[in-house]
Simulated scan of single mutants.
Amino acid sequence: MKNIELKEINHYYGKEQVLHDINISIKEGEFFTLLGPSGCGKTTILRIIGGFIKPLSGSIYVDDKDITNLEPEYRNMGTVFQNYALFPNMTVEENVAYGLKIKKLPKKVIAQKCDKYLELAGMKDYRKKRIDELSGGQQQRVAIARALVIEPTMLLLDEPMSNLDVALRVKMREEIREIQQKIGITTLFITHDQQEALAISDKIAVMDKGRVLQIGTPMEVYKNPVNDFVANFVGTSNCIEKKDYANFGLEKEEKPYIYKRPEEMVLLQNTNESGFIKVKIENKKFLGPIIEYTVCNNGKKYEVTELNRLNNSDKFKIGDMGYLGVLQGE
């Protein structure tokens, strides 16, 4: 049974349409990510699911029950906002307990649930600390514990790592995924970071200008992008047109164009084999474990990524000529 389903959701801010016919199904226990640039409508969808915005048209279902007109307090959604929205005048424990006190649960039950979710978030030892005494990562853990303690139907995460530095972002995304898998909660994650989306999602919906362009597993979206936007927003791609198929030995392809990732390209110094075109090395970036090349053939540029195998780091210099091909087969 589908846990969450959005059907034909449309929404406007003033005269501007910000969502166009959104249809999304999120299965129970799934980690589902909305990925797209700023202003594409990701957060609007999250707020519609949470009940903070009512869509102009369309419906939201939880286990086939229409919740479109329910107020947020009756939806049982746990939300972690971009700025965490913690109460600075409360301790960690008081923040986590807040939602349970609103529900007027017994003190013993509140204490037990707080213990459980503070432990899960790794914040039990900080329960008496004030929010302003915590680091950004610790505040995020408190926000997650507060969202989970009410044992919601769904966890909504609105770019929760945007305020963290790069190293901490990687650590926290792994912790979020670990917590989600431990309790099996259905999760909607909002991000503009393609690496985050690829690393932790079960499913990804790529969005642009208020539309969902493609939904699939990270591998499906990465290997089979449906258009130029997806191909270049989720990684980098080389678009090869049908008129160039013979040059690359791709005569069996039937589509008018195909996308090949930089790691699917082969760059050789010399070859007598067919399926290669002569190119000039226009740019080279040494990035430690990988080497990135930009090469050019008759004004058309291609991106190539190679593993740094130590013996190939000096294979090409900028201005050198080489031969470009495409990896064949799966």
Rank of each mutant, 00 (worst) to 15 (best):
R169F: 06
I215F: 12
A167N: 14
Q181D: 13
V170I: 14
E220L: 09
L213Q: 08
M123I: 07
D132R: 07
K124D: 14
I150L: 09
R146N: 14
L198W: 12
S201K: 07
I200L: 08
V166T: 14
E119M: 05
E196R: 01
R127T: 10
R173M: 00
Q140N: 08
K129D: 04
Q195W: 08
N95T: 06
K124V: 13
S162M: 05
G136H: 07
G136T: 02
C114F: 02
V206D: 06
S135K: 11
Y117F: 15
Y222D: 08
L134Q: 02
E151Q: 15
K104Y: 04
I176H: 03
T191L: 07
G210K: 08
E159M: 09
R130L: 13
L198H: 03
L213A: 07
K103Q: 14
K171Y: 11
T153W: 09
R169P: 03
V206A: 12
T186D: 10
L198S: 06
K128Q: 12
D193L: 05
H192L: 10
R169E: 03
D132A: 01
R127K: 15
Y98K: 07
P218R: 09
I102Y: 00
R146T: 14
Q138S: 04
R146S: 11
R173S: 13
Q194N: 08
G137A: 03
K209R: 14
L213T: 05
V206T: 11
A143C: 09
Y117A: 04
T186Y: 12
G184C: 05
L105Q: 09
L120I: 02
M154N: 07
G184Q: 02
I102S: 00
K124M: 10
L100K: 00
V149F: 14
T217S: 15
M161N: 07
P218Y: 13
Q194P: 05
L118R: 04
A205M: 11
I179H: 10
Y117L: 02
K101G: 07
L134I: 07
E93S: 12
A167F: 00
L100Q: 00
I110P: 02
D208E: 13
G210P: 03
P106N: 06
G137R: 05
N163D: 05
N163F: 13
Q214C: 10
I176V: 14
